[in-house]
Write a protein that binds this DNA or RNA. Structure first.
Length: 103
DNA sequence: GGCGTGACGTCAG
DNA sequence: ACTGACGCCACGC
């Protein structure tokens, strides 16, 4: 039962479609707490089977520091068709996951 | 029940 | 647009 925030957050992240990205705040909001972005981080840090590379911050940039997953995340997104600049910036207007838009 | 950890978010300068 | 400072929440010990 997903009666804890972590479980719901986990489920939300697992629902992110390929070729799309979601922000921490968005995930937290969908899980029930718009301000629980930090909780999303905790889940990602403690989960191994999640599309963590599809999770980025509200600026639309990769949060991971270079050398610690940055390149991997960028490569995975590029492989899914998401345009990522060398700086790690993603165009949210084009790739942000629109879960309610039916898209 | 308090403290530290964690890939954040928002505002002000 | 970028950086720094403060606030936010959940989990393990």
């Amino acid at each position: 039962m997903a009666d804890t925030l972590s479980d719901r957050i986990h489920d939300v992240i697992a629902s992110i479609p390929t070729g799309r990205v979601a922000t921490y705040g968005q995930i937290a909001a969908m899980a029930g707490n718009p301000r629980a972005a930090r909780a999303v981080v905790w889940v990602l840090r403690h989960s191994e089977r999640l599309p963590w590379h599809r999770v980025i911050n509200s600026r639309g940039t990769i949060s991971l520091p270079p050398g610690d997953g940055f390149e991997l995340q960028r490569a995975l997104l590029l492989d899914e068709g998401v345009s990522v600049t060398p700086d790690g910036r993603v165009d949210l207007t084009r790739f942000l996951w629109n879960a309610t838009g039916g898209n």
